[in-house]
């Protein structure tokens, strides 16, 4: 204490406010990560999780209720519903990933150019984004997929295009926020040019919330692609995309597990992804 006056430098070194939010994320987040891990493994190595075939079944045991042998029951051809869900994961997950990537890349470029360049670039791109926003997202996806043809990959592209506007708008807002930051102006005074400001300061400070949105959008894309598959706009059977499983299950009123098992898988997956996104947003 006696040194305070004589050495003022020590004083501001001493009061280092360190915020150590050490430790693990909350339990629900850990659980969510576990769910996502399982889903990823399902899509990468489905054979590890089930030895049954998703395409051929034993018609003798058709429409069987869930049991130890068939966790999710069997469908009208006696195919194991659990095997169909596991084998349908790859297509559902990769298509959601493709959709997010399309939205993220195109949207970010538009938002970045629009927010950083301003002026006529912003005006032109802004109108384009307005147009994408003006057409209801799901309708836009339906129109695009009907033009491209009914395939899961096209549903993914359609979903991605309809997400471009959301990404562009967020990226633009973030870039505009960062662009006016004092440290960006400071970098000009340190001899930096616009490209340096963009890549060195604006992008690193703007991309975080866009990434959080990307995680959230992954969940949303699973839902939209499942909805498109439900309407029959994805790959036709015997493909077993999650949405398609729900759609084909709903005809068998006596076997509700055919609907609820894949539906539950969708809900739990999306819920987990949303939880992770919310955690990332708050931990930022």
């Amino acid at each position: 204490m006696t040194a305070i006056l004589s050495n003022t430098q020590l004083r501001d070194l001493g009061s280092t406010p360190r915020k150590l939010t050490a430790g693990l994320p909350p339990a629900t987040v850990l659980l969510s990560f576990a769910v996502v891990l399982v889903v990823i493994l399902w899509s990468l190595v489905p054979g590890l999780f089930t030895s049954l075939s998703p395409v051929t079944g034993d018609t003798a045991s058709k429409l069987a209720a869930p049991s130890a042998a068939h966790w999710f029951g069997t469908d009208y051809l006696g195919r194991d519903q659990y095997a169909r869900v596991v084998h349908g994961t790859a297509s559902s997950v990769t298509s959601a990933l493709v959709a997010v990537l399309i939205g993220l890349v195109i949207g970010s470029i538009i938002g970045l150019a629009s927010g950083f360049r301003g002026g006529w670039v912003d005006a032109v791109l802004g109108r384009f984004v307005d147009v994408l926003l003006a057409i209801p997202g799901f309708l836009l996806a339906v129109v695009i997929v009907s033009s491209l043809g009914f395939q899961t990959i096209n549903a993914a592209i359609a979903t991605g295009v309809s997400a471009v506007a959301v990404f562009a708008r967020l990226m633009r807002a973030e870039v505009m926020r960062v662009r006016g930051a004092t440290y960006v102006e400071a970098s000009y005074l340190q001899g930096g040019n616009r490209l340096h400001a963009l890549l060195g300061h604006v992008l690193p400070n703007a991309y975080r919330s866009v990434l959080v949105l990307a995680v959230l959008q992954f969940g949303t894309s699973i839902l939209i692609i499942a909805s498109l598959a439900f309407l029959g706009y994805g790959d036709p059977p015997p493909a077993s995309d999650w949405g398609l499983l729900v759609a084909s299950g709903k005809t068998y009123v006596t076997a509700p597990w055919l609907v609820y098992a894949p539906a539950l898988v969708i809900v739990i997956t999306v819920l987990s992804v949303n939880r992770i996104s919310r955690w990332l947003r708050n931990a930022k």
């Binding site: 930051a181 004092t182 440290y183 400071a186 970098s187 340190q190 001899g191 930096g192 040019n193 340096h196 060195g200 300061h201 690193p204 400070n205």
Partner: peptide
């Protein structure tokens, strides 16, 4: 600048912040 809470890029480390003018010039 007036406010050191806004004039330093939060994503950079101090060493890089101080080196920035040297790099740029």
């Amino acid at each position: 600048y007036q406010n050191p809470f806004t004039s330093l890029d939060p994503t950079w480390r101090v060493g890089r912040i101080v080196r920035e003018p040297l790099d740029q010039f």
